[in-house]
């Protein structure tokens, strides 16, 4: 929840190598059936106008430099909505040769370069449901509560 962003959230859609399923569900959320625009969500044409990034995909090496540049362009406070299993933790590509493996790895790279992100919201699902995206927007605006608490368990080797 942000104390700065309470009203209309303008979003910029950043596909970092996703399969399009999440991307068409984002569009779906903006069309009549779900109509996220009633919550003030608007897809904008430049990251410079955006409050939050809708980041989909596992972040391929090829797209990484461009993703970093796009995140840098978002004015503070900047938020990332990591949409779909790929963005949340790399998904099925978490250890393949041409991806970095999701937003957690990206955050490390951003930290090394001194680029700050004010909040990350994880929306799992393969693909995400439009309802999940709307729920995430609700949390970001502070009108809904988070459903799960984060608990990190070590994977069994």
């Amino acid at each position: 929840m942000s104390e700065y962003i309470k009203k209309s959230i303008w979003v910029f859609h950043l596909n970092t190598g996703s399969c399009n399923a999440c991307d068409i569900e984002i569009l779906d959320a903006l069309t009549p059936y779900f109509d996220a625009e009633r919550l003030g969500v608007k897809l904008v044409v430049s990251p410079r106008h955006a409050d939050a990034l809708l980041l989909t995909g596992p972040i391929t090496y090829e797209s990484l430099p461009k993703v970093i540049r796009a995140i840098e362009a978002v004015p503070r406070p900047r938020f990332i909505l990591a949409l779909g299993s790929c963005a949340v933790g790399g998904g099925i590509w978490h250890d393949t040769y041409s991806t970095i493996g999701g937003v957690p790895e990206l955050l490390k790279i951003l930290k090394n370069r001194g680029i700050e992100v004010d909040g990350v919201y994880y929306v799992p699902g393969c693909p995400i449901r439009p309802e999940a995206l709307i729920y995430a927007v609700g949390i970001l605006k502070g009108i809904l509560q988070k459903k799960v608490k984060m608990r990190v368990r070590k994977a069994i080797a």
Binding site: F12, H13, L14, N15, T16, G17, S18, N20, D23, I24, L27, L43, V44, V45, S46, P47, E62, S63, K66, R69, A70
Partner: peptide, 11 residues
């Protein structure tokens, strides 16, 4: 603009 265009679904 680069490979990211807001209305573009893929890079």
């Amino acid at each position: 603009v680069g490979p990211y265009h807001p209305a573009l679904h893929e890079p």
